[in-house]
Amino acid sequence: MRAYGTSDADDGETLRPRRHLIKVENYSKAYDRVLAVDGLDFAVAPGQILGMLGRNGAGKTTTLRALAGILTPTRGGLRIAGHDLRVDPVSAKARLAYIPDEPQLFEALTVWEHLEFTAMTYGVKEFGAQAEALLRQFELTEKRDEVVQELSRGMRQKLAICCAYLHAPLAILFDEPLTGLDPRGIRTVKDSIRERAAAGAAVVISSHLLSLVEDLCTHLLIMECGERKFFGPIDEARVQFSGGAGLGSLEDVFFGATEGKPVERG
């Protein structure tokens, strides 16, 4: 796997121990008169995997899309690897990868050309070996020269992840990463997320699959109606929301946090 901080987009910059690679401060987003996210704060350090939980409409995807530079914040600051998305969006995005729940691929390009386009856009000069390795890892080698409109939903998801990993991003944002994947694909993606975090990337995963979050994440952000209900290590959430011993499941934690009281267990 390519070492972090050595992408050409980083101009030779190496991954120094930073306190936080993703930092969100007092972030708010309003659509007309509807406040989708209100005064959100959280941060993700290298190696951490943050799970975002919340009901539909809680503001998870809005937050991820703002971090990816797609939406402009109404208020607050968003930083990727120290670069403010408002002040220096290009530098921030060069260190970031965003994998949406429904990958938007370019229909006319082949699988390989997607990787080529990503390499060109992010300034990754020697991308061939890295791209081949990613295709092997995600079992797309045989599809290398196929146009993406021929791919299944799961393969499109895997290709989007390959493109995201190609430039060795310091911050990775996943929105429902397992959608459309078969069991083998699920395992591959989960392993890859662990590897990226172990190599020093900061990862954010938004998902309704509590088992995924429980399995992968080190930290938890629970949102409700655009507001933060909990942010911190996952063990701390267990202690706070599922009884004093901290032995409850993530389901207990989620309902405890969103419904305002610890769940009574028999």
């Binding site: 797609i70 290009v90 921030a92 995005k93 970031l96 370019f106 856009t121």
Partner: peptide, 11 residues
Amino acid sequence: RIDVLKSLPVG
């Protein structure tokens, strides 16, 4: 595909 274009590190 505006999401993709907007998330690219391109001004």
